[in-house]
């Protein structure tokens, strides 16, 4: 690991000020950043430790919903009674990620900013446009079983590895960020970018901006939600495909629905097209399949990962089927 300067921020203003130094990065739980620094992929000259900032609370704003401080640990958020009751998909997504130890360290803000697990991104000897813009992409002709099938470009086919963010995408979450220019709010759908020609630009954060909170709107349908993660190991593995879904069925028809996919794109993939097909229509297996087909029509596979398209289709259908069945028995 390259040497760096360590600064511990006392408040948000100080953190933002320190982050203005060239080459500075925020240090939260460190579970991804420290690993990448050891691999010489991240090379910050200054680390601004934000873990002692007062951003570790989950609160209920007067207008409803939930406000989650950026430094709330993944494990604490997953166990929070309000999350479990109102947004079970989020609790499930968090608990399906990483290991208990890592969830005890990792923060909500850091989880959003996780970087891809692409094997070629991690290997300094390989070409990777994300790590070294313009160097090429060795994943396209290489091992790409874990890679994206939606929103890819010729520059990059990496996926975003977060589970939590997939649930947040389904829940219409909003990210609050603070920088030298003040505080602003970004909808989760706009927070991560697709690679296009600039895969090294992964979010719409401006330099030096700090994620301070994530806000969840009041969303009754979220009480009936599920996260389904499909992976090679039974635990402690990244998703091949995951589905975050919330479904409300009224008289056999879809009254409300939220759907997002993980493991398929460089960002948590909100399935707007599928939601459009589903809303107001019958809550049947056939309708679920049509919705999944509509969402995945634009998907393109590579030799190793074409299976993900079919897997995503099946997982969407299975998750919705289960939610519909639970609605029927409730």
């Amino acid at each position: 690991m390259r040497p760096f300067t360590y600064v511990r921020a006392g408040d948000v203003a100080e953190a933002v000020r320190e982050a203005a130094r060239p080459g500075a990065k925020f240090l939260g739980g460190g579970t991804n950043l420290v690993d990448l620094m050891r691999e010489d992929i991240e090379r910050p000259s200054t680390l601004v430790d934000i873990t002692r900032l007062p951003l570790a609370e989950v609160t209920e704003p007067p207008g409803g919903g939930l406000r989650i401080g950026a430094l709330v640990r993944n494990s604490h958020l997953a166990a929070h009674p309000l999350v479990r009751a109102r947004y079970p998909v989020l609790s499930q997504a968090l608990l399906s990620g990483a290991s208990a130890q890592l969830r005890n360290m990792a923060t909500v803000g850091g989880n959003l900013l996780q970087r891809t697990r692409c094997l070629y991104f991690y290997d300094g000897a390989a070409a990777c446009n994300k790590r070294e813009p313009g160097s090429g992409c060795d994943a396209i002709g290489g091992f790409n079983r874990y890679h994206a099938v939606l929103g890819t470009s010729e520059s990059c086919i990496a996926t975003h590895p977060s589970d939590m963010a997939v649930a947040l995408a389904a829940l219409d979450a909003v990210v609050e960020v603070t920088g030298e220019g003040g505080t602003r709010r970004i909808s989760l759908g706009d927070f991560h970018r697709l690679p296009e020609g600039t895969p090294h630009l992964e979010t719409t954060l401006r330099p030096g901006e700090l994620v301070t909170a994530v806000e969840l709107p009041e969303l009754p349908v979220a009480a009936r939600s599920r996260y389904r993660k499909v992976r090679d190991r039974a635990s402690y593995a990244f998703a091949l495909v995951s589905v975050a879904a919330a479904l409300e069925v009224r008289d056999g028809a879809v009254g409300a629905v939220r759907l997002a996919l993980g493991g398929v794109a460089a960002k948590p993939w909100r399935a707007h097209e599928a939601e459009r097909v589903l809303l107001g229509g019958p809550a049947t297996e056939e309708a679920f399949r049509q919705a999944a087909d509509a969402e995945l029509a634009a998907a393109t596979g590579r030799p190793d990962n074409t299976f993900k398209i079919e897997l995503a289709r099946r997982t969407v259908v299975a998750t919705l089927r289960q939610l519909a069945a639970e609605a029927g028995t409730a």
């Binding site: 697990r117 094997l119 070629y120 290997d123 390989a126 290489g142 190991r233 402690y236 990244f238």
Partner: peptide, 16 residues
């Protein structure tokens, strides 16, 4: 070149 030289990407069985 070995591309998954890591216990995160080479999957040995876990408890589960």
């Amino acid at each position: 070149r070995i591309m998954n030289p890591s216990l995160a990407e080479y999957h040995i069985p876990v408890h589960a």
